[in-house]
C-alpha cells in the first residue's frame, strides 16, 4: 500500500497509536460534560469539605494546620478515584464492540491500554493543577520548596498512573461499565479511607493501624506530605515509588494478557 507511512521501529508505532487512542479518550471529556464535571468538581468539593467541614474536628499532630496535612492526601485520593475511569472506559469499549474493531486493525497491540492510561494521566495533570489552585486559595502552603512540590506532584501522577493499570485490568475482566464501578468501590474505599490520606493513622484502632500504615495510599500520601512539609523524606519516597513499581509490574502484564485474551 503506497499511501501507508512506514514505521520502521515498533516502538514508534506503539507510541503513535497510543497517542491516537489517548486523544480519542480525551475527546470524550469535551463531549460528555458529566465526565468532566465528575472528575473536576468532585475533588474540589472534597478539598472544601475536608477543609471546612471535618477540618475543625480533625487535629493532626505536628505544627502544621490541617489543610497542609490534608492536601497531599486529597491529591492521592483523587488520582485513585480517577483511575476508575480506566475500568469504566475499557468495559464500555468492550461492550460496544469497539475493542473488537481495534483488535482487527493493524495497530500496535499495546495502544488501546497505553492510550487509556495516558488519557487518564493527562486528565490527572489538569485536575492536579486545578486542585492546587483551590488548595492555595483555601490556605494550603508548601513548607519546603518548588522542586520538592513538583517532585510530590510527580509522585502523585505516577501513583495515579499505576492505579490506572489496576483498573484497566478490572474493566477488562468485568466487561460491563456498571459492574466495573461496583467492583471498584469496595477495593478503593478501604484503601482511601483506612489510610493516612485524611487523618493520622495513630488515631485508628491498633489492628487497623498495621494495614493503614503500610498500604499504598498511606505510604504515598505520607511521602508526598514529607515532600510538601519537610522532615525525613527519602525513605517515604522510596517506599511510595516501590509501591508504584510493584503495582505496575503486576497490573501491566495482567491487563495486557487480559486484553489479548478477552473474548
Amino acid at each position: 500500500m503506497s499511501q501507508r507511512t512506514a514505521f520502521r521501529h515498533p516502538w514508534t508505532r506503539a507510541l503513535r497509536d497510543g497517542v491516537a487512542v489517548a486523544r480519542r479518550n480525551l475527546i470524550a471529556y469535551r463531549r460528555v460534560p458529566q465526565l468532566l464535571v465528575f472528575s473536576t468538581i468532585q475533588p474540589v468539593i472534597f478539598v472544601l469539605m475536608f477543609r471546612y467541614v471535618f477540618g475543625g474536628a480533625i487535629r493532626p499532630t505536628g505544627r502544621f494546620p490541617y489543610v497542609d496535612f490534608l492536601m497531599p492526601g486529597i491529591f492521592v485520593q483523587t488520582v485513585v478515584f480517577g483511575s476508575m475511569a480506566a475500568a469504566i472506559g475499557l468495559a464500555t469499549d468492550m461492550q460496544s464492540g469497539l475493542l473488537e474493531r481495534f483488535r482487527s486493525l493493524p495497530m500496535a497491540r499495546s495502544a488501546v491500554l497505553t492510550g487509556r492510561t495516558l488519557a487518564d494521566l493527562t486528565r490527572n495533570v489538569g485536575v492536579a493543577v486545578l486542585m492546587s489552585g483551590v488548595g492555595f486559595a483555601v490556605g494550603f502552603r508548601i513548607h519546603t520548596n518548588t522542586v520538592a512540590f513538583l517532585a510530590g506532584m510527580l509522585l502523585v501522577l505516577l501513583f495515579g498512573y499505576a492505579f490506572s493499570w489496576i483498573f484497566a485490568s478490572v474493566g477488562l475482566f468485568v466487561g460491563d461499565p456498571e459492574a466495573a464501578q461496583a467492583a471498584a468501590f469496595p477495593v478503593m474505599a478501604p484503601l482511601v479511607f483506612a489510610s493516612s490520606a485524611f487523618i493520622p493513622v495513630s488515631s485508628m484502632p491498633g489492628w487497623l493501624q498495621a494495614f493503614a500504615a503500610h498500604q499504598p495510599v498511606s505510604v504515598t500520601a505520607t511521602a508526598v506530605r514529607s515532600l510538601f512539609l519537610g522532615g525525613p523524606t527519602a525513605n517515604n519516597v522510596i517506599g511510595a515509588v516501590a509501591w508504584c513499581v510493584g503495582i505496575l509490574v503486576v497490573a501491566f502484564p495482567l491487563a495486557v494478557w487480559r486484553y489479548r485474551n478477552a473474548v
Binding site: 480519542r24 469497539l98 473488537e100 474493531r101 493493524p106
Partner: peptide, 28 residues
C-alpha cells in the same frame, strides 16, 4: 471488519471516527 453492533465511538464525530481508524492503520 464491520460488526453486528456499530463499533464506532459515540463521543467522536463521524470524521473523528474515520480519522482514528486511519491513524491506527498508519495512513499518511
Amino acid at each position: 471488519l464491520a460488526g453486528q453492533y456499530a463499533a464506532v465511538d459515540p463521543n467522536l464525530t463521524a470524521l473523528e471516527n474515520l480519522r482514528l481508524v486511519g491513524q491506527l492503520t498508519a495512513l499518511g
